[in-house]
Amino acid sequence: MTLLLLLLVVGQSPIRRVLGAPVMQSWMTIFLAVVVQALPFLVLSVLLSAALVVFVPPSFFARALPKRPALALPKRPALALPKRPALAVLVAGVAGAVLPGCECASVPVAGALVRRGVTPAAALAFLLSAPAINPIVLTATAVAFPRNPEMVLGRFVASLLLACAMGWLWQRLGRADWLRPPARASYEGRSKGAAFWGSVRHDVMHSGGFLAVGAMAAATLKAVAPESWLRTVAGNPAVAILALSVLAVLLSICSEADAFVAASLSQFSLVARLAFLVVGPMIDLKLFAMQAGTFGRSFALRFAPATFVLAVLVSVLVGAVLL
């Protein structure tokens, strides 16, 4: 500790010169602006997500969603069997619009739904829609894009379409051996108070770290990256959409905060930024790890690439119509 203090004292003049440089002043302004705007939404989401996971029993969701069709009942018409899972996917996708939760909360909830007999296609639709179209995310998007209210509608429509499409795609093409039965939830067996605050502490540290990384990346792009380079990338629509989609995967920002990062990337078109907002909550590095841990690597290696490709396509289509 003493050595560290001595180094700080000796190097305070160079440090002041670096921090006082116009580039660093611009960098810190952008970084703080993104963090300060996003932090209240992030904290509120963490609190609601912890309450959702700990205090609302997963059996509630299982009762609310249509179940797998009972194949053993001979009286039920054969043509009616596929309608129940397809309806469950739609109901689960829409349920994400009214149940606040971040990506970290949606994965264990989806795993609990599968354990309680909900068709996997519906559970996966909920997994994708809940962190993308819940009220906190949409409100944060409206605050981040006050002059572009169509971004809220575009994000809602594109994310809901993608969640339902992936659910229906899994229902049609998915195989049982690709999906490992989820293990028991990590908070079972603990008191609800301890589980709640444990979830809050974990998510604040986890999501807050990714928010800081995202804010630093956005500040660096704005303050350090050459303006001509950004104009070149942003000027090519296809490259801009792909670049921000990949950036969303790498940054792994919590969905309650990503709108403020997207809003700061003003060089890029609204369609490219919509792709950033749609891809991020659906698939990023932390989500891939969580999905692999919950449902198995075989599932994640198939589900994640398909989700990324379809998310980019849906974003372009919805953006072309609404933006």
Rank of each mutant, 00 (worst) to 15 (best):
L270F: 13
L270I: 08
L270V: 12
V271F: 02
V271Q: 13
V271L: 08
A272F: 02
L274K: 11
L274C: 08
L274D: 11
A275F: 01
A275D: 01
A275M: 05
F276V: 10
F276R: 01
F276Q: 02
L277A: 09
V278P: 10
V278S: 11
V278K: 14
V279M: 00
V279S: 01
V279T: 10
G280E: 05
G280L: 01
G280D: 05
G280H: 00
G280Y: 02
P281A: 14
M282P: 03
M282I: 11
I283Q: 03
I283N: 06
I283R: 03
I283F: 06
D284N: 15
D284L: 08
D284V: 04
L285M: 11
L285V: 09
L285K: 05
K286H: 07
L287N: 00
L287M: 12
L287T: 12
L287W: 05
L287R: 06
L287A: 12
F288K: 01
F288H: 06
F288R: 02
F288Y: 11
F288E: 02
F288S: 05
A289L: 15
A289R: 15
A289H: 14
A289D: 15
A289Q: 15
A289S: 15
A289Y: 11
M290S: 06
M290R: 04
M290Y: 03
M290C: 03
M290D: 03
Q291E: 15
A292M: 04
A292T: 07
A292H: 05
G293N: 05
T294F: 10
T294Y: 04
T294H: 09
T294C: 14
T294R: 03
T294Q: 09
F295D: 10
G296P: 00
G296V: 09
R297K: 15
R297I: 13
S298T: 10
F299C: 13
F299K: 10
A300Q: 00
